[in-house]
Design a protein around this nucleic acid. Sequence first.
DNA 1: GTCTATAATTTGATAGAC
DNA 2: GTCTATCAAATTATAGAC
Lengths: 202, 202
Amino acid sequence: MAPKTQEQYRHMKDEMREKIFSGALRVFSHRGYAATRISDIAKACGISHGLLYHYFASKDEIFTELVKNATTSSANALLHTASIEAPAIQKIEWITAEILKYIGSDSDSAYYFFLMVQISVSESLPESVMEIMKTASEPNNIMTRIIAEGQQQGDIVEGNVEELSNAYWAAINGLAIFRIAYGDTLAFPDPAVLLRILKKEK
Amino acid sequence: MAPKTQEQYRHMKDEMREKIFSGALRVFSHRGYAATRISDIAKACGISHGLLYHYFASKDEIFTELVKNATTSSANALLHTASIEAPAIQKIEWITAEILKYIGSDSDSAYYFFLMVQISVSESLPESVMEIMKTASEPNNIMTRIIAEGQQQGDIVEGNVEELSNAYWAAINGLAIFRIAYGDTLAFPDPAVLLRILKKEK
DNA sequence: GTCTATAATTTGATAGAC
DNA sequence: GTCTATCAAATTATAGAC
């Protein structure tokens, strides 16, 4: 192997690659993987499609890197929250506020959520993406644990933890999608509205 | 065997078109509009792609008919609920139970929800679909009216009606998507869980 | 009614000019 | 580094055999 040359090769092109990632994320979200043309991404980045192959080997590689970003960063955020020393309900309040803040802003977050939704539904994806999804730690598992914790502490409503978690994540993902579809004209709910799904009234 | 009447032939043609619709709805949902190949639909229906053109003029026509179905049937269901003589909260309880029942079953409902989600996000759609979306009455408008009604009657929590409506619909749509992604292994929440978003505790 | 063969177009990827 | 020209493969839609 020649790790040294590969590393140098990548470092040289990192800046442009970042620019391409950003454009590609939005194009993939709006069109889906298979429907996204390499020329669409190139146009969104203001370069020719030929030049794009100077920075990426293929359409698959761009997509795979994006998915890698999405899975690792979301898993890390959740793991970090889970490790905080606080009552479960506070963990959930904190993460909900964070997620909604980012989804509601102009950042890439909403697009990452929708990217993962598309992947979970899609039946024909590159093998490389399938591999990542298999090894990705599921946010749902972490969330169900926190919910169960909150139930024991008497702050979260009774009921099947997976059903509660699904309802909560469905709302989060749905809002991310609405945000992409309707932009900043969307009336964006307060974290408290979503937390009513889980929180026990006192 | 006796020769078939014209009506029998017409009936056979209608049946085949229904079969193609059903197959196409699932393929479009799993792959998106632009990424769906005519041969994918044909394969899902167990026919050759040449034969498909015997029943439909183009890929666009199949998709457009599906969108037409989705918009009219969902609008009708909501309008019907809105016209019922009952407190607003009961209307919402009824429609939520209905929607979740259908999404959770093996019917086409979940796919129709996701189809509309994809359309709302997608940037490149056939002109014919764009036309339908422009004239389609928005479910959101009907829902916000019912929610406002429920607030006046003291059964629904205070707060911006559009934000509440968005949170509620986000959860509904999110669950439809989860249902497609995970099939009947999904832990499907009770209507009561979703209604906690809107319902005032007493 | 149903299929296979094929035309016309599009698109992912490469090669080579500047 | 960047672009344009081009190849090879895939895809929509049509034509024609059975």
